[in-house]
Design a protein around this nucleic acid. Structure first.
Lengths: 209, 209
DNA sequence: CCAGTGAGTTAGCCTATGTTAGCGTCGGGC
DNA sequence: GCCCGACGCTAACATAGGCTAACTCACTGG
């Protein structure tokens, strides 16, 4: 039934800051991210920015199109991105896409987790949580090597995802590094002790991650 | 086709703090809230609490059951609640429920808005945003009278929804009251100047509300 | 009638985090 | 080889909001 969903599958590329989807776009395509990271975000009138979702390699990047007829949060590339573009014949068939609803569920649950993080957690907890989540996702995508994985975000990106300041992200990462709970150099993350980081993340007993 | 979805429709009541749905419950019922307010929330191990959704009269309260096979955030009553319980014959038919997917879309978009609020907004902005949203929802439900509506939340509830402290919510509300942008006494909200409050809320140009 | 409880309020102090600003390094483009 | 713009990093200072604690005012229940 794939033919009903994707008329064509093209290989496409994006550079950092390029839009995959603009605000108010109507559903036309899904992107299967092969390489690179992207995010969904929102800007306040005065420039404050909040990242509301991250798309990693292996993720199906759909700006909630099964739910909203028009995209209300732009999606932009954070790094170079290589993806296959699946243009949609009939948007109403989106949800027939393979594994679609379970992916959607994941992403909504993640958003819920972030909500708790932003609302109630300290800087250390937010960072621990975010980095654990990202590591885990990379691992599931087969892109982790032992306790390590790529993490191509700038500290500013991390700040915009965690609701902190770039300066404070730096401070906090420093202190976490010095305590040996994580290493993060030149876009590469290493977590010597998963358990320790987990403890720092103030996860509820049932948080899946 | 209603018969396929709801085997029975009972009138049910809840008292404050009573569970409509517990964590790990499996989908059994939806509640159509006739009267009273409820919320979905999450507790951190040390007691910190974040409210992740509010259910008002007229809302269909479903803890994301179309998405997750098991409820990961409990739903509890904040006030006395009167609702009709629609028990589900076959959970997989949830999404056939009338207007279901558009309600789901709304709730996901709201969650997105809250994310931005918690991540990037000040106390005044968060409160303005929340109160505007609630007033607007009450208005749509036909429960607003002019510029006023019921708002049966305690300041602690408001704090847990906005990621602030009850004390700080109080301080901030005081100052907003004294500036005349809102009145909030004995569970009753009045907004003398919608526009003024809107300005305080730091909404993006395209935030629906 | 009184005790107990939950809610709103206020005050004083404290600290996590924001702000501003500046430095050094790196890599790309010319 | 030189600029220039990102980015990471640091330091000094400023503040929004957290924390603790106390007092009041309903209510509720016995």
């Amino acid at each position: 039934m794939l033919s009903q969903i994707a008329a064509s599958e093209d290989l496409v590329f994006f550079r950092p800051h390029q839009f995959l989807t603009r605000e108010h776009d109507r559903p036309e395509a899904l992107y299967d991210i092969l390489e690179g990271w992207a995010c969904r975000h929102r800007l306040l009138p005065d420039g404050r920015r909040q990242i509301t979702a991250l798309y990693l390699p292996g993720d199906l990047c759909d700006p909630m199109w099964s739910l909203t007829p028009t995209c209300h949060e732009p999606v932009i590339a954070l790094t170079n991105v290589r993806a296959t573009r699946k243009s949609l014949v009939d948007p109403s068939t989106i949800d027939r896409h393979k594994g679609f609803s379970s992916r959607l569920a994941e992403s909504v649950e993640r958003q819920s987790n972030w909500l708790v993080s932003l609302g109630r957690k300290t800087a250390v907890e937010r960072l621990a949580h975010l980095l654990l989540e990202l590591f885990e996702r990379m691992r599931r995508a087969g892109l982790a090597y032992g306790q390590q994985c790529a993490l191509p975000l700038t500290q500013t990106d991390i700040a915009d995802a965690t609701g902190l300041t770039a300066v404070h992200v730096n401070r906090t990462l420093q202190s976490m590094r010095s305590k040996g709970v994580l290493e993060l150099h030149s876009k590469w993350l290493r977590i010597p002790d998963l358990g320790a980081l987990r403890d720092l993340a103030a996860l509820g007993p049932h948080d899946a991650l």
